[in-house]
Amino acid sequence: MAELRQFVVSPFQTNCYAVISNGHCMVVDPGDQGARIAQELKDVTVDLIVCTHGHNDHVSGVRALKEATDARFMMPEADYAWAKEHSGKVDGSGMAYGEQIPDADELLHDGDTWKLDELSFEAIAAPGHTPGGMVLLGEGFAFVGDTLFHLSCGRTDLPGGSHAELMETLAKLKRRIPASYTLFCGHGPETTMAEELAHNPWLQDGEHATDGMH
């Protein structure tokens, strides 16, 4: 059975997740604390580091984690050049933290699949919060990054954001993610697709709330 560990990182309380299967681990969005996460995961083999999008609060710890573990680093191609230039520098918040990302071992595209031990994953393109945002779809769960939150969604006022694209992405996720799935968000609490379909105003036809905040 898979194990999930969660760390809260970065100045913006970003959720970092470690999925573990038979001692093999995939880290999702290490924020700015790669060295700390490597220490926390010394009891397993970190094989993969995957980022849902290119913002500093999700990627600026990749270099330290990769150097400590020699894991493969994967992230969306559409966010890679921007993240390569801006990671570790002053970002949209006016803050600088973490380090520049290393070269990616693999750039992800819509529909790409991979395995961690016995677990299978698929990348679903989820532009809107950033041009290259992706949802990482597992078996019974999904890492949704800053695309979807409990009763909210990601902001679109940062460079590269698009409200229209985010609305199209949310409509696609309604079709792609089963109601029974658990959603692990980039900030805030986990939720379920059933909960969001029932109560998230951004997933209701013809209803919209104020824009998200992360």
Rank of each mutant, 00 (worst) to 15 (best):
2 A>M: 15
2 A>S: 15
7 F>E: 02
11 P>M: 12
12 F>I: 06
14 T>R: 03
18 A>T: 03
18 A>D: 05
19 V>D: 00
22 N>E: 15
23 G>W: 10
24 H>I: 08
24 H>W: 07
24 H>V: 09
26 M>G: 01
27 V>Y: 06
30 P>E: 11
30 P>L: 09
33 Q>M: 07
33 Q>I: 06
36 R>D: 12
37 I>R: 00
37 I>A: 03
39 Q>V: 07
40 E>R: 02
41 L>A: 02
41 L>G: 02
42 K>V: 05
44 V>K: 05
47 D>P: 08
47 D>H: 09
48 L>S: 05
49 I>Y: 02
49 I>A: 01
52 T>D: 12
53 H>V: 09
57 D>Q: 13
59 V>I: 02
61 G>M: 01
64 A>N: 06
65 L>C: 13
72 R>T: 10
76 P>F: 01
78 A>C: 03
79 D>R: 01
80 Y>D: 07
82 W>L: 05
82 W>H: 08
84 K>E: 09
84 K>Q: 12
88 G>K: 01
93 S>P: 11
94 G>E: 10
95 M>C: 14
97 Y>E: 03
97 Y>N: 00
97 Y>I: 00
99 E>Q: 14
100 Q>S: 15
104 A>D: 14
104 A>R: 06
106 E>N: 13
108 L>S: 00
109 H>W: 12
109 H>F: 14
110 D>R: 07
112 D>K: 05
112 D>R: 04
113 T>I: 09
113 T>A: 12
114 W>G: 06
115 K>Q: 15
116 L>I: 08
119 L>I: 14
119 L>T: 08
121 F>G: 00
122 E>S: 11
122 E>Y: 11
123 A>I: 08
124 I>Q: 00
124 I>K: 02
124 I>S: 00
125 A>F: 14
128 G>D: 04
132 G>Q: 00
133 G>Q: 04
134 M>S: 04
134 M>P: 00
138 G>Y: 02
138 G>W: 02
138 G>N: 04
138 G>D: 04
144 V>S: 00
145 G>L: 09
146 D>P: 00
147 T>F: 10
148 L>Q: 10
149 F>T: 03
150 H>P: 06
151 L>W: 12
157 D>Q: 10
157 D>N: 07
157 D>T: 13
159 P>I: 03
163 H>R: 15
167 M>A: 14
169 T>E: 05
170 L>Q: 06
172 K>T: 14
173 L>R: 04
173 L>N: 02
174 K>A: 15
176 R>G: 07
176 R>V: 15
179 A>Q: 15
179 A>V: 09
182 T>E: 09
184 F>R: 04
187 H>K: 08
188 G>V: 03
190 E>H: 05
191 T>M: 09
192 T>E: 09
196 E>D: 14
197 L>G: 04
200 N>G: 11
201 P>F: 10
201 P>D: 07
201 P>W: 07
201 P>R: 10
202 W>N: 05
206 G>T: 09
208 H>C: 13
208 H>N: 10
213 M>F: 13
